[in-house]
């Protein structure tokens, strides 16, 4: 068996394992006696996904941590409303996306993005929190110049190479809107990087 086929089978196995885990968790979450244990499993399964989704969009570790914690508290409070129409992972993805958008919007609306925040961004791009080169740091700063929804689309495409169709499904947008958002975000990124 060649290496590529082995990898493909392994991926499929992981995917079906994840689906099975999701099904079990959802079933246990509906039951009062198993809810807490199931929620613990849910946090274990999705904490990295939620955290990295937030961190890639807000850059600062403390902000990403706040967002991730809020997401799981919201999941705990609203898990009874989860009907299972979408996959659990997609539902969590949407809650995280909304939490990130609310966070960024509130910062901009209240004009809270001040010199302290800039210092925090600088600190988050220091060696302690970031291992990239100078140009990669500039890239992260450019990312913060993009409106939150465009930023979300851009990071999903850039980091995970998520297909436009999947981004549209996860963020509940049309494929056209996703492509347009990605295009605008890329243009703004290019402009920022050329100017700085």
């Amino acid at each position: 068996m060649n290496l590529q086929l082995k990898q493909l089978l392994k991926n499929q196995e992981n995917l079906s394992n994840e689906k099975d885990k999701e099904k079990i968790i959802v079933k246990q979450l509906k039951n009062k006696s198993t809810k807490e244990a199931a929620f613990r499993s849910l946090v274990d399964l999705y904490k990295t996904q939620v955290y990295w989704q937030a961190r890639r969009n807000v850059v600062v570790h403390e902000d990403a941590d706040d967002i991730a914690q809020n997401v799981f508290i919201k999941i705990w409070q609203n898990v009874d409303k989860f009907r299972g129409d979408a996959k659990l992972s997609t539902w969590i993805y949407r809650i995280t996306a909304n939490e990130i958008i609310d966070f960024v919007n509130s910062k901009y609306k209240k004009q809270e993005f001040n010199s302290d925040d800039l210092d925090r961004v600088e600190q988050s791009l220091s060696e302690e929190y970031f291992s990239g080169t100078h140009i990669e740091k500039q890239f992260q700063k450019a990312l913060l110049e993009i409106p939150p929804r465009q930023r979300m689309v851009f990071t999903m495409r850039y980091y995970d190479e998520t297909p436009f169709k999947d981004i549209a499904e996860k963020l509940q947008l049309t494929v056209g809107a996703v492509k347009a958002s990605y295009h605008h975000a890329s243009e703004k990124m290019k402009r920022f990087l050329l100017e700085n």
Binding site: R40, V43, Y51, I73, S124, F130, S131
Partner: peptide
Amino acid sequence: NNFKVPENYFDNFTNEIM
């Protein structure tokens, strides 16, 4: 992804949430 997280961040995360 060039970001780093504090040591044991994910290990402690679940307990903090619970």
